[in-house]
Amino acid sequence: MASIRTLHILNKTPDHPRFNRCLASLGSEDALLLTEDGVLAAASDRFTGFAGPVYALRADLEARAVEVAGGTLSPVDFEGMVKLTTEAEQIISW
């Protein structure tokens, strides 16, 4: 069932020190979920070094009027977020 090694939940803006710390610790079987201020990274290309799946909470994107550039990132609703947490062996909340 667990198809994600570690789910990284990131709620910090790209200029927060924890943002880069999180990016640096992404492994090849990991997934990244952007929430709250973290979705502002979707407005730029701040996580392009990571080949794994990147998700962003739709409500947080819409709240901030952040448009998702096609292909790089999948918006998820709250249900989708819960599903991701159940699919991960381990979760890190940054």
Partner: peptide
Amino acid sequence: GPELLNQYKHTVF
């Protein structure tokens, strides 16, 4: 590092 974090199901800042 990963060795430390792998010991925990949840890590929270």
